[in-house]
Design a binder for these strands. Structure first.
Length: 427
RNA sequence: GGGACUAUGGUGAAGUGGUUAUCACAUCGCUCUGUGGCAGCGAGGUCAUGGGUUCGAGUCCCAUUAGUCCCCCCA
């Protein structure tokens, strides 16, 4: 194990080793190609932003700002923070670059690392990665439905078909206040019976009491008034239309009147994708919703928007659990080039390149000198042919082709080797 | 912030308080500068760190650190 002097990766942060890379490439490839088919365009924003941006967007009282944000002061005295999520950054970029004058809605997607100073555990890390989409500038129901539709299709195309989408509407500023008042009234005379956490929530954020996992609280929550009953006409119609479109598109969903999300900026539709057999608690794989007020909170004109983000590490966890087969990265070599002696070694760089250029899947180990160790590697790689290029061959401009299975060898002219090996591989 | 468990070569493990810490696999080297699969030999560890108990600690105790997991919260 590590000596004490050796440095380690920061807590909750990990190296993504070569053998893990195939998952990342696979997921990104699938995700990008799907959302690009739906006219989303990629945007990259800085990993750090002013701390102010996240306080303003996520909300002062949110956990993200209160205890999870990685903030620091720069040498120049600026207050910056590692992004805990990307929606605020995308909106900032949208405003800063005047994207409001482009054709609407703006459909953007992103991928990259996010940072939250939280206690690491399975499926939750301090540096983690999200792939997400945002649709800015369109209030219609079809956008909410399209986003959920896309998320559903994406999980499916990744082979994750055992996920349910839970959906709810949180109303908006015209109807939510009335609901919150009602909720406070409901809990008022039950405060003695709820858990300690919930007593705090009552003051800070009543909504959060709804999804408490304590048995006692769960029991009480069964009788809590559902927010749907308090939605005003517009919100109710919006929600109903979203569900109708999902029905039409045959996307199964589960209504969850207790679903609330951690960020303050959500309005109306909110949703989460969870596995059917809810194994752990860190199992939300995609989460999102509508945030019609975020853009004007951030100084823009009132602009409706919606989006979601997917936790890549959680997708990988799910793929591994399912034993999904993932396409390998790199070539499976069919030919191995063995070189012996100085003259041959000098010429083998060019020879290798000629083979590669001709589309031959070739590998070599130029640093090794003994023919034995090189053949051992060739064998381990399971190549069909080995090219043996030694001192003698280099002088005579020939090369030996060895068929690995039979051990049959043939000496051919060096300038014929590319052509010859291609012909052999075709058979 | 609260809690549980774990820590022995790169990986996975063995190791009733008693010589030089063992095994498998992986890596590299050698046997072996002209032919792979096999074999043999060898290299690599301050047993996480610090303290304590003891004639003696990888083993028992305490602390620290890290990792994993759970609560909280989220993706």
């Amino acid at each position: 194990m590590a000596k004490s002097k050796q440095t380690q990766a920061p807590k909750g942060m990990h190296d993504i080793l070569p053998e893990e890379q195939k998952y990342w490439r696979h997921i990104l490839k699938k995700s990008e190609s799907l959302v690009e088919d739906y006219s989303f365009e990629k945007i990259d924003t800085p990993i750090v932003e002013s701390t102010e941006l996240f306080i303003r967007s996520a909300g002062e009282g949110s956990d993200i700002v209160e205890k999870e944000i990685y903030s620091f002061k720069t040498r120049g005295g600026d207050d910056l923070a590692l992004r805990p999520e990307a929606t605020a950054s995308v909106v900032r970029a949208y405003l800063e670059n005047g994207m409001n004058v482009r054709p609407h809605p703006a459909k953007l997607y992103y991928h990259g690392p996010m940072f939250r100073h939280d206690q690491p555990q399975q499926g939750r890390y301090r540096q983690f990665h999200q792939f997400g989409v945002e649709t800015i500038g369109d209030a219609s129901e079809i956008i909410d439905a399209e986003l959920i539709f896309l998320a559903y299709k994406l999980l499916n195309s990744l082979g994750l078909d055992n996920y349910n989408v839970y959906i709810n509407s949180m109303g908006d500023s015209s109807c939510r206040p009335a609901y919150l008042r009602n909720l406070r009234d409901f809990y008022k005379n039950k405060l003695k019976k709820v858990c300690a956490q919930c007593k705090v929530r009552y003051k800070k954020n009543v909504l959060r009491m709804l999804d408490c996992k304590e048995e006692g609280c769960k029991e009480i929550n069964k009788d809590a008034p559902p927010i749907v009953d308090f939605l005003d006409e517009d919100c109710k119609n919006h929600f109903r239309r979203v569900l109708e479109i999902l029905d039409e598109a045959k996307i199964p969903y589960i209504l969850n009147p207790r679903l609330v999300r951690g960020l303050d900026y959500y309005t109306r539709t909110v949703f989460e994708f969870l596995p059917e057999e809810n194994t752990g608690t860190q199992s939300t794989i995609i989460g999102g919703g509508r945030y019609d007020r975020l853009i004007d909170f951030m100084g823009g004109s009132k602009t409706p928007a919606a989006g979601w983000s997917m936790g890549i590490e959680r997708v990988i966890l799910a793929l591994k659990e399912k034993n999904a087969s993932i396409p390998e990265i790199g070539i499976k070599p069919k030919v191995f080039l063995v070189q012996l002696g100085d003259a041959a070694k000098k010429k083998s760089l060019t020879l290798f390149e000629n083979l590669r250029k001709a589309g031959v899947e070739v590998k070599s180990s130029l640093g090794r000198d003994s023919i034995k160790s090189q053949l051992r590697i060739a064998n381990r790689l399971g190549v069909k042919y080995t090219l043996i290029f030694g001192q003698k061959e280099a002088l005579e401009d020939t090369i030996i082709v060895r068929e690995m299975e039979t051990g049959i060898q043939e000496t051919i002219l060096l300038n014929k080797v590319v052509e010859d090996i291609k012909k052999r591989l075709k058979k």
